[in-house]
Amino acid sequence: MGRIAKTPTPPYYAVIFASERTEEDRGYGKMADKMVELASRQDGFLGMENANDEGLGIMVSYWDSLEAIQRWKENAGHQAAQERGKSGWYQSFALRVSKVESDRYFEI
């Protein structure tokens, strides 16, 4: 997967997850890789982008429908990762869902 997701013609949805991490890793990296793999096999998944800088992480995942986002939210493996995040990996986090009405992609 490239660093910038190549998404289809809108409309589609973006789930924006911003987080501040705790100091300890305790398996976070392995779980993050597992979640990328799991999400990429989920019906309705379109792509993902991720950036981290000094404890602040932003992950944007793209989905073809609100129903696909709901199925991802209810995925048992994803729910287990969420619980671990709440109990030890994150100091704080925010989750936002947006409908993408327009996009442009440029390669130079």
Rank of each mutant, 00 (worst) to 15 (best):
W63Y: 10
E20C: 04
V100I: 15
L56K: 13
A68W: 10
F106Q: 09
E83L: 14
G88N: 11
M35C: 06
R3D: 06
W72H: 01
Y62D: 04
E23M: 06
S19T: 13
S61V: 07
E107P: 04
E24Q: 11
E74C: 07
Y90G: 00
E23K: 07
W89R: 15
S102L: 10
S98C: 11
F17T: 05
G55D: 11
E67G: 12
M59I: 15
G88T: 11
E54Y: 10
N75G: 07
L56E: 06
D33F: 02
K34Q: 15
N50T: 14
G29F: 07
A5I: 00
L56H: 13
G57M: 13
Y90F: 15
K86G: 13
R41V: 01
E67N: 08
I4M: 02
M48K: 02
V36H: 00
A51G: 08
K86A: 15
V97F: 03
V15G: 00
A14I: 06
V97R: 14
E23P: 08
Q82N: 13
D64W: 10
G77D: 15
M48R: 03
V60G: 02
V97C: 13
V15H: 05
M1F: 08
P11G: 00
I108R: 13
I16T: 09
Y62I: 02
G88A: 15
M1A: 07
D53I: 06
A5W: 04
G44C: 04
V36M: 06
W63A: 01
P10T: 03
A14R: 00
S40Y: 01
M31I: 11
R21M: 06
V60C: 01
Q91I: 14
F45N: 01
Y90R: 15
Y12C: 09
W72E: 05
W89L: 09
V97Q: 12
K34M: 08
T9R: 10
